[in-house]
Write a protein that binds this DNA or RNA. Structure first.
Lengths: 338, 338
DNA sequence: CTGAAAGCGCTTACAG
DNA sequence: CTGAAAGCGCTTACAG
């Protein structure tokens, strides 16, 4: 990439450099027939050289419709989460940089998508999710954010992420590490569970799950309630009547949570029971949500990179290139809760 | 609005109908000088009649840059809420219909906004919010969603909304109605509190507040914890030892919550204490969040209409018209919690 | 295979 | 105040 020139290079610039007409340049750039391979190669090389970017506006003007990308959301209860807000923001930005216009679609409006959008980014998979197949039938190029058995997709190394978090807890001397997660049926959550298991088995420790219900109004509230309930029952079972909380000998010393939101709920419950973090119990999350997770030891995913890659892949899908899956790395952020 | 025609009307269509040149149409549409008021009115009328929508592509092609609208967010802890996700979606849609491109900005990146965006929509006001003044100085037209002392803005009848909810509780025979709200410093939350007071005073009842802290990771979790704490203390104060919950004689019979999320937390706390809703305690919310508030008696705000109006106002701001504030009505939705 | 030209919808100097 | 014309960057018949 050369320096950002004052004026973006146009098709004319390429034509001039190649000594051909703009028609040929257009044909070469768009993979249209009716041009010799040699010339095409030459033109493509020049366009790469000067970092040519087509004008979305001009293309729209001709085609009569904007390069609208439908962002198809997941189920309502899932999509209303902080993580998605961040993803929206970055997708919007990344699409705009490519001259594309983002428009949101609820997942159950997928049928209306092909009318107004020429491509789609699929978010929030769920059991029985038929959007990808449906769009595929209608030849709408699309990219999925998350794991996908086929087609274009960009995902995270979820399994490795929870492995890192759990191994970190082991390294800190924790021996009774509980996995806190809901929706274990959900594919990527399941991957996180597997990462937890990887680390536990490696250390020869036994697994223990705090499994949360599937339908959830609020992840933090849910994890709070479940952990609280557990702690209350532990207190009741204690031998000291009156002083209902005997947490000197907790059956766990760490909570590896599937998301930051779950971790936040757990932290609140521990706090309300006067349990020291990380002294008595260490807590880890996943996502690294800004502001909310500032204190939390967690697995950072680069949401901006996810959005960026999704848009790049969408470009390839539109160009008819073969499908591919990209897995982005994650990073352990050690902070104050472990 | 006429039926969606196969081909969108262009400036030529208007010119033909008005019997003028496209140049005059363009001038009229863009509020440019050099055209008689009579002609301008006439052209504007026709354009309204045929529901003319300018081609963003054509405009971009000329200006060299897209009609980017910066959507400036509020503070992180506020913006990561379901309400904002819904607002984003509708704003994106509404902007797209007008050929504008949405791009998100964190509130602390407002300084970077004028470089890439020609207008802005401001979300999530907060104490010391200087964005509006800052953009005003730099002549960036903007519209605020929420109350605003000056400039363009679109808000809700918040005060009337909570008045409606509270009056409804009174009509249902409730006499000890608690207002549950956080951030009472926030302008629009304060309006909701005032609506609550209006209804209570009208009924000659005494007010009682459950005031939540300002900095909140999660609204539902926070209201849950505070209500739970209160209920536990009530139980402890009871005369029946062992059976620590004596809720036959609660000091309140209704909770008027400032948001749906707060209401959801309260419902969870009541449920965990075995308190019947609405038999023993009625609960109301505000916002009518999809899915989350399906069972809740709440005050519905039309988020789509808010987005729509914001975009219309932005158009007027761009056209240099005088600032105005629009207040949208709200509606009481009586459901199962009251 | 290659090029000259028209045209997508709009704005804006430039003439009247 | 009003209009004819050029041009934004690109695609696509239409001729060679």
């Amino acid at each position: 990439m050369t320096r950002a020139s004052a004026k973006a290079a146009t098709i004319h610039e390429i034509a001039k450099r190649a000594g051909v007409s703009i028609a040929s340049v257009s044909r070469a750039l768009n993979g249209k027939p009716g041009i010799s391979e040699g010339l095409r190669e030459h033109i493509l090389a020049i366009s790469r050289e000067i970092d040519y970017r087509p004008s979305a506006a001009a293309r729209q003007l001709i085609s009569g419709k904007a390069a609208v990308v439908g962002i198809s959301l997941g189920r309502k209860d899932i999509e209303l989460r902080p993580y998605y807000i961040l993803l929206y923001q970055h997708l919007t930005l990344a699409l705009h940089r490519q001259g594309m216009v983002p428009v949101f679609f609820a997942h159950d409006q997928t049928a209306r998508l092909p009318d107004s959008a020429g491509a789609a980014i699929l978010l929030g998979e769920f059991p029985g999710d038929a959007r990808e197949a449906w769009l595929g039938e209608r030849q709408v190029p699309c990219v999925r954010v998350g794991e996908s058995p086929s087609g274009f997709s960009v995902g995270l190394d979820e399994r490795h992420g929870l492995y890192l978090a759990t191994r970190h807890l082991v390294e800190r001397g924790r021996r009774h590490i509980v996995f806190v997660g809901g929706e274990l049926a959900s594919p990527h959550k399941h991957l996180r569970l597997m990462g937890y298991r990887d680390a536990l088995h490696e250390a020869g420790l036994e697994e223990r799950l705090l499994s949360l219900p599937h339908e959830v109004v609020d992840a933090s509230l849910t994890s709070y309630r479940y952990l609280n309930r557990w702690l209350v029952s532990l207190g009741k079972a204690s031998t000291e009547p009156g002083h209902d909380l005997a947490f000197d000998n907790l059956p766990f010393d760490a909570l590896a949570c599937a998301t930051d939101e779950l971790a936040l709920g757990c932290l609140a419950a521990l706090e309300d029971h006067g349990i020291g973090v990380p002294q008595q119990v260490a807590v880890t999350g996943f996502d690294d949500l800004p502001t909310l997770a500032d204190q939390l030891t967690t697995v950072r995913q680069d949401i901006e990179a996810v959005a960026e890659r999704a848009v790049v892949l969408l470009g390839e899908a539109l160009a008819g290139k073969p499908a591919q899956h990209v897995t982005l790395p994650v990073e352990l952020m050690v902070r104050q809760t472990s």
